[in-house]
Amino acid sequence: VEVSPDIYQQVRDELKRASVSQAVFARVAFNRTQGLLSEILRKEEDPRTASQSLLVNLRAMQNFLNLPEVERDRIYQ
């Protein structure tokens, strides 16, 4: 799965849209901590040159964001 270069903005938009914390998003989207998500968003590494471990996390976030909005909102509950 190709990771979109605007994945970082997509995540920020989703945090605002759903009014969820980084901690909640990190847990449900890719089963990691708020600290890691914060670092990923701060660095904004180009997905095309990202490490394998970062790509795994970015893909998981993208797959989560590809779910229908209704389903994502249900998962946040």
Rank of each mutant, 00 (worst) to 15 (best):
A29H: 01
N66C: 08
E39D: 14
E45H: 07
V3N: 04
A29P: 02
L65S: 03
A23I: 10
R12C: 03
V28P: 02
F64Q: 01
R72Q: 00
D73V: 03
S38D: 09
L67S: 09
I75Q: 15
Q52S: 11
Y8V: 03
R32A: 13
L58V: 04
K16R: 07
T33V: 03
V20K: 01
L67E: 09
R72E: 02
L41D: 02
I75W: 07
R48Q: 10
E45M: 06
R74M: 12
D46I: 04
T49W: 10
A18F: 05
S38E: 12
L58W: 01
T33C: 07
P68I: 05
A29S: 13
Q77G: 15
L36K: 15
P68E: 12
E39G: 08
Q62V: 07
F30C: 08
F30K: 00
E71D: 06
Q22Y: 14
V1R: 03
N66D: 14
R27A: 10
L65N: 02
E71M: 06
V28M: 06
A29V: 12
L55K: 08
K43T: 08
A18D: 05
S51Q: 09
N66A: 07
L54Y: 04
R59Q: 14
V20F: 01
F25H: 01
P47M: 04
I40K: 02
A29I: 15
Q22A: 06
V3T: 06
S19N: 15
E69A: 09
L36P: 07
P47L: 10
T49F: 13
V20M: 04
S51T: 12
T49P: 01
I40F: 06
K43N: 07
E14C: 01
T49V: 12
S19W: 08
S53E: 11
Y8A: 03
S21E: 04
Q22S: 09
D13Y: 14
I75H: 08
Y8F: 05
T49S: 13
V56Y: 07
K43L: 09
K16G: 09
G35F: 15
L15F: 09
V3G: 05
L54D: 09
Q10E: 12
V70S: 12
L54G: 05
V28R: 03
D73P: 00
L36Y: 04
Q10L: 14
E69Q: 12
S21H: 08
P5C: 15
S19I: 09
Y76N: 02
R32S: 13
A29W: 03
K16H: 13
S21K: 05
L55V: 10
R32C: 15
F64H: 07
I40P: 02
P47G: 02
S53Y: 09
D6E: 11
K16M: 08
D13V: 15
V70N: 08
S19P: 11
Q62Y: 04
A26R: 02
V20Y: 03
Q9T: 14
K43H: 11
F30V: 05
Q77T: 12
D46R: 04
P5T: 14
E45N: 06
N31Y: 06
L55S: 08
E39R: 05
L54V: 13
S53V: 12
I40Q: 01
E69I: 08
N57M: 09
E45V: 13
L54W: 03
L58A: 01
P47C: 04
D6H: 13
V28Y: 06
N57V: 06
L67Y: 10
E44W: 01
L55D: 07
I7T: 03
V20S: 02
R17L: 02
L54N: 08
F30I: 06
P47I: 12
E2R: 15
S19R: 15
N31F: 06
E69V: 11
T49L: 12
N31W: 02
V20I: 15
A23D: 15
S19D: 15
L67P: 00
I75R: 12
N63A: 13
L65E: 03
L58G: 01
V28I: 05
R42D: 13
A60N: 05
D73R: 04
E71C: 05
E71H: 12
A18E: 03
P47T: 13
M61E: 00
S4G: 11
S38H: 08
S53K: 13
T33Q: 08
R48W: 06
A60H: 14
P5M: 10
L37K: 00
P68C: 07
R32K: 15
A50H: 02
L58N: 00
E69N: 09
S53L: 08
K16E: 10
V1M: 04
E44I: 03
E14G: 01
D46W: 04
L54K: 07
V56A: 08
V1F: 06
N66S: 13
Q62I: 05
Q9K: 15
N31G: 10
G35T: 14
A23N: 14
P68K: 08
I40T: 04
N66T: 12
E71W: 04
P68F: 03
E2Q: 07
F30M: 09
D6Y: 07
Q10T: 08
S19V: 14
L65T: 01
E71N: 13
S53Q: 14
F25P: 01
N63T: 10
D73M: 05
Q9S: 12
E69P: 12
V28D: 01
D46T: 06
S21L: 03
E71A: 11
A50W: 03
N66K: 08
L67H: 12
P5V: 09
Q62C: 05
A29E: 00
P47D: 01
V24A: 08
S53I: 07
V70K: 15
K43E: 09
E71T: 10
S21R: 04
R72P: 02
P5E: 14
N31R: 11
V20R: 01
S53R: 10
R72A: 01
N31D: 06
A23W: 10
S53H: 07
V24P: 02
R42Y: 12
F30E: 03
F30A: 06
E14I: 01
F64Y: 05
Y8L: 04
L58I: 08
R42F: 13
Q52G: 13
D46P: 10
L37M: 06
V56N: 04
E2L: 13
S38K: 13
L65G: 02
L37E: 01
R27M: 11
V20H: 00
G35L: 11
F25M: 03
Q52N: 09
Q77S: 13
D73I: 03
A26V: 03
Q22H: 08
S4E: 07
E14H: 02
V56P: 09
E71G: 06
I40D: 01
Q62N: 08
V1S: 04
Q9D: 15
D6V: 05
R48N: 14
L54C: 06
E71Q: 12
E14Y: 03
E2P: 13
K16A: 14
E14Q: 02
Q77D: 11
F64G: 00
E39H: 06
Q10K: 07
V56Q: 15
E44A: 10
E69R: 07
K16F: 13
V70E: 12
I75E: 15
P47S: 04
Q34E: 12
S51H: 12
R42E: 14
N31S: 10
F30Y: 03
S4R: 09
R74N: 07
P47W: 04
L58R: 00
D46C: 12
L55E: 08
V70R: 12
R27T: 12
Y76A: 02
Y76M: 01
V11M: 05
S38G: 13
M61S: 02
S21P: 07
Q77C: 03
M61P: 00
A29L: 13
V24D: 15
V3K: 04
M61K: 01
S38T: 14
Y76L: 02
N57Q: 12
Q22I: 05
N31E: 09
D13G: 15
R72V: 00
N63P: 01
S53D: 15
Y8Q: 00
Q52H: 10
A60T: 10
Q62L: 05
P47F: 04
P68S: 12
A60Y: 12
G35K: 15
L58P: 01
R32E: 12
V56G: 14
A18H: 06
R59N: 11
E39T: 06
